[in-house]
Design a protein around this nucleic acid. Sequence first.
DNA 1: CTGTTAGCGCCTTCAG
DNA 2: CTGAAGGCGCTAACAG
Lengths: 337, 337
Amino acid sequence: MATIYDVAKRANVSAMTVSRVINNGSSIKESTRLRVEKAIKELDYIPNRSAQSLISKDTKLLSLLITDVANPFFTSIARGAEDKAHEKGYQLVFSNSDENIEKETSYIRSAVSRGIDGMLLTPSGDFSIQNINILTKYKIPFVLVDRSLKGIESDIVHGDNSDGTKKLMDHLFENGHRTIGFVTGPSSISNVRERGDAYKQFIKDNKLPFNEKWTFQTDLARMQTLSYINLLLEASKEDRPTAILCSNNFLAADLVNNMNKMGLHVPDDISVVCFDDPHAIQMPNSFFTVVNQPAYKFGYTGMEMLIDRIEGKSGKEHKEIVYDTELIIRQSTKKIN
Amino acid sequence: MATIYDVAKRANVSAMTVSRVINNGSSIKESTRLRVEKAIKELDYIPNRSAQSLISKDTKLLSLLITDVANPFFTSIARGAEDKAHEKGYQLVFSNSDENIEKETSYIRSAVSRGIDGMLLTPSGDFSIQNINILTKYKIPFVLVDRSLKGIESDIVHGDNSDGTKKLMDHLFENGHRTIGFVTGPSSISNVRERGDAYKQFIKDNKLPFNEKWTFQTDLARMQTLSYINLLLEASKEDRPTAILCSNNFLAADLVNNMNKMGLHVPDDISVVCFDDPHAIQMPNSFFTVVNQPAYKFGYTGMEMLIDRIEGKSGKEHKEIVYDTELIIRQSTKKIN
DNA sequence: CTGTTAGCGCCTTCAG
DNA sequence: CTGAAGGCGCTAACAG
């Protein structure tokens, strides 16, 4: 709890000199610098950032707002973001919005209140625009990750949703699947829309049978895949999809967990594919055939863009970085006749 | 960027009155409160926490220092911790120490500098005591998670390492395994030691064959399991272990990934078990037989203890919470003759 | 190379 | 119920 004055007194200098030593500012006589450093060490003095921030208007605090760290996709983003932030001397406040707009609002408000220098976020949906407006009003730089916002111009990092979807559909198609179901999230989320559009496009382009019935939309936070499975179970084998495309990993895990409970086997009865690996680390015997996005890079590069913008190193135009996806074929899909 | 004075001016009151409204302090005439609230809204005024902290000495900022969020065990801890923090109106700064003492020191120093109200941490090892001393000196409450520190009295949450190890060993024993290898981390980590002790104890109690050779110790951040696998490969089938106990999930994943590359099959050639699930979420077709610890609860309860202590709701004595572990039998182990 | 003065935005204390 | 003065810990701006 020593203050700069305690150090000053002990080193027989003014507080200003101590301040200069701390921030290795302008020239200081070697002998006094040594004396000050000694006093700092002896008193275990650590500068008070709140006081510094009050003057400098910056905090070296960044906010990372994602929907759920427990989702390995976001876990990797968080890790990447923290790595870059640490490299650049920033700390990260992290929060989980759980796809909930009110939670998002409250987090953003308290982040602003904290005087964060910038924010890296995955908006919960298009309504998030009202939250983004708070950032804009307070002139707080932000970078979007994984999801864009209709009508909002900003720096953004995301994956190629259309191409990724196509890769998944191609894989299924090549393996003989024609009736392909789709389990997805709310259409207020940009990537959900993009994946959905690409799914429909593929069906159209390849003249596949289409039945609205096999498209199931649910909340990303409270998934209700059971009702979909019941639908599957009620249908005859000829009518029902032989494969299902899931918008994300959590949906896929939930779906397959439930299918197992209900006696539907993957991939023997139905193949399942999804976006994003459900594991944060490489696992032996992984199950899902997925299209993987470089989540770590999303976080790392997103954070880099953010810091560049904060430090005035980016131009006026906004940057968009789109990463390629990678198809990884594993055990959740199988070739049919 | 409106300040309390801007609001005051607009509402025709003094700054003090605005302050009272913000902190719903002592009685204020309804009409003036309304006027102030209107002004606040009109100006989009958000109080400056740095300024508040300078006076109040608290920040409602907590620090979560773990070794690596990407490890699902810590991911769950982080989620639990954030949930409780949010419930109680605190925000979380999170950092990854990567089992690195210097990184840990620097994170702790900057957390102190930020004026965090408390810290929830997994120390990287017994040397972390020097870092803990910084917290103690600055009277910052902290709670240890998963790892204790020799000679440090503090609140702590962890799993029952001895019993967990015993469950794993029992399972292997019941499945006919007698020569059981051990892949582990540095002994400066309390839970590594405890698991190692329990492993040796089990061998002793059951008069199993023991060969120092089959115990392999490596760095938890940069695992070197390949050399161990070479050892396995060089040995005759009669000599080498039929099962391996790994101190943690990452070690096990790395080991098995490498074994696969080198042509050793799990569980056909060798069974493998470990502490902690390698998945943050329930997965269909999970591979590892593990003893699972309630990581989410570690974070949630640990955070609760921390906040209780910060808010003066815990007694003088330190609390230790020990959670039971749960054996989950899956595909990485198999019965032998 | 070093010190003095003033003030960042807010709240505590004390008046009224 | 409301306001004025002062200061939290630090640094910018200006001396010297």
